[in-house]
Design a protein around this nucleic acid. Structure first.
Lengths: 349, 349
DNA sequence: GTTAGCACTCAACAAAAGGGAGTGCTAACA
DNA sequence: TGTTAGCACTCCCTTTTGTTGAGTGCTAAC
């Protein structure tokens, strides 16, 4: 069977109506509140066809219709295709102003972003901190904080900083520390983790003149700083409790599953790194129901967007909501936020 | 009316039974499953007295009894008094072993602790990172990371580290930076935030020889590092979704309220800093129902314990669960965890 | 191809009925 | 005087039975 223009319109009307009410949509409703001038009987015939095509279903006989995952898929794909890339730049609620002020800390910004997103959409939001594709070492600073304790500060490309305090057996003079600093910086700067091989390490330890212990510990710190595994991907979330707004998600077992994912965050990694790198529709991915890589979210839809701050610095923003979420608004909001991230960090860094 | 031994036993039996089942407890149940050899009729008489005393209530006529907040209060107070301080050291589930391995980072440890707590008790848990009562500056390190960007590392008593990268207009030579380092360290080390007054600041800027801009920015960084307001108290939580295990808390509006508190964390500050400093029953505080300072938790009970790592380094651990929580186990578990924190950090730092 | 009309289905709500857990009270007993 | 058996009573909970109404599918007429 063919999906003609009229059927599309009816499907859209059903989706929009279901979005608002959360209730199955009947033929009379469509007949009255859509621009097509058709009687409910005609709509019924069309709906019957749409059901046969697998785009809508009845929860039970004598109920209205609700969209299936396939129905949503069709809708979303069509929407993404026709989306005017620059129109519809959402105005975010006022909170976004406040945000600009205190962008002193990346962490603060991202937390705030997540909050704004959740507040604006009434869905749950998540943001992964940017990850460095090429983690070049930029700077190492060794200094003494106590008699036998040294502080190693490791700065990586993109100004990510890691500190480690460690104990050393041997007693180091100020000069020792100075020359170690010089040694480390001249030998390691600009290198990625792959480039710091055994050869370099051995050479370093030779030149360190006996202070192999310190060098070893510093290297450990360095390794940790530029390591780049999913394990410690920072994720900020907000508005997980928004799911209680949607009756279809708020029964306790479903809600528990979803909120748990947000609480433990680990599983969110799958969502946020899933399509990293792939250039899709402006970096925007939509997962509907079972399409999501996280099983516990099979009753939800997830929209993610990849942001790129340049310098190989990229992360992902995501929104989780009911399958009947307002995809259009969500996509627009994500685009707006990405735009904001852009200007904020282009200006700053 | 007087609360004799037998009444106490009956109250205890009711509380224990209600703890397990979550259902109102009837007289026949007590008569059968307690060591007192009494008929249900006698129990009924006693229960009637207990109700008159406000220690138990009937949800409705012809239902069993459940403890009131006052009833719990009595029970808990008695329990805390007679608790053998060293017996009952809970064995925590195996997970606590794993914990010892990777205590490389305080943050990791606390997160893990929270998890273990939640896992062991099946309630929600929260831990505040230790706060420094006397925030003495220990060490400042200034270094250049880019042409016009400096990195300031500020170490505070207790080895808390803060980094800031900032831009400077003027061009500084290596020697400038070295002497600034010296200047800052000799003048500021060992001082608290109160002690860094305008006098010192002016003196510093004078001696800085024109580099007032840098000094100013470093001082901002210092201020932020040793600032000690509730705003940025780090709180780690786990197991918020455990509340769904308890039917009396898992209807969506209640669950939403509670989980929201855990998600936003801000309100938890009130709970975790409420009795900081006061030395109660081994630092353990029990809030039953409305006693809690957080309104949204009026249907819960909260048990908190203050840990002290020495050096004025203290924080709080807390457990949130239904009013019928197993207070005894919770208190014991908290004591065990505090013991672990003790050994772990005494050994380390 | 569209529409009015009609019989039919079924969730949702409400009222009625039965069951059962638990109580309070009374009277008898040790 | 404290304890207990017995009994009537209460009230929640569950099941049953209607009742309503939204919505459908089908048929026949336009």
């Amino acid at each position: 069977m063919e999906l003609d223009e009229r059927k599309k319109k009816i499907l859209n009307a059903i989706i929009r109506n279901y979005q608002e009410t959360g209730e199955p949509v009947g033929s009379r409703t469509i007949s009255k509140y859509s621009d097509l001038q058709l009687s409910s009987a005609t709509i019924r015939n069309e709906m019957s066809d749409l059901e046969e095509m697998g785009l809508i279903v009845q929860p039970h006989t004598s109920a209205g219709r609700i969209p299936t995952d396939r129905g949503y898929r069709l809708y979303v794909d069509h929407m993404l295709e026709t989306a005017d890339r620059d129109t519809g730049r959402q105005e975010l609620a006022e909170t976004s102003e406040f945000l600009i002020d205190r962008m002193d800390r990346m962490e603060q910004v991202l937390k705030q972003m997540a909050k704004v997103l959740a507040l604006n959409t009434n869905y749950a939001s998540m943001i992964s901190a940017p990850r460095y594709n090429r983690n070049k070492l930029k700077f190492i600073q060794l200094s003494r904080v106590e008699e036998h304790k040294l502080l190693a500060v490791v700065v990586v490309e993109g100004n990510l900083i890691k500190n480690t305090i460690f104990e050393v057996e041997e007693k180091l003079s100020e000069e020792d520390i100075l020359s170690l600093n010089l040694l480390l910086n001249t030998n390691l700067n600009g290198l990625t983790i792959e480039e710091i091989n055994l050869g370099i390490i051995t050479k370093l330890k030779e030149q360190a003149g006996g202070h192999t212990e310190v060098v070893g510990k510093v290297l450990d710190a360095v390794a940790e700083a530029i390591r780049n595994d999913d394990e410690d991907l920072q994720i900020y979330t907000s508005g997980a409790t928004n799911i209680f707004r949607y009756p279809e998600l708020s029964d306790s077992s479903k809600a528990k599953e979803i909120i748990q994912v947000f609480e433990e965050k680990k599983q969110l990694t799958n969502l946020l790194t899933d399509k990293l790198g792939e250039e899709g529709q402006q970096g925007i991915q939509v997962y509907i129901g079972n399409e999501t890589p996280v099983q516990s979210m099979k009753d939800c839809s997830v929209v993610t967007a990849t942001y790129d701050l340049g310098d190989g610095l990229q992360g992902t923003i995501g929104i989780v909501g009911p399958k009947r979420m307002d995809y259009e608004k969500v996509v627009q909001t994500l685009q707006t936020v990405m735009g904001q991230l852009d200007t904020m960090f282009k200006k700053e860094e």
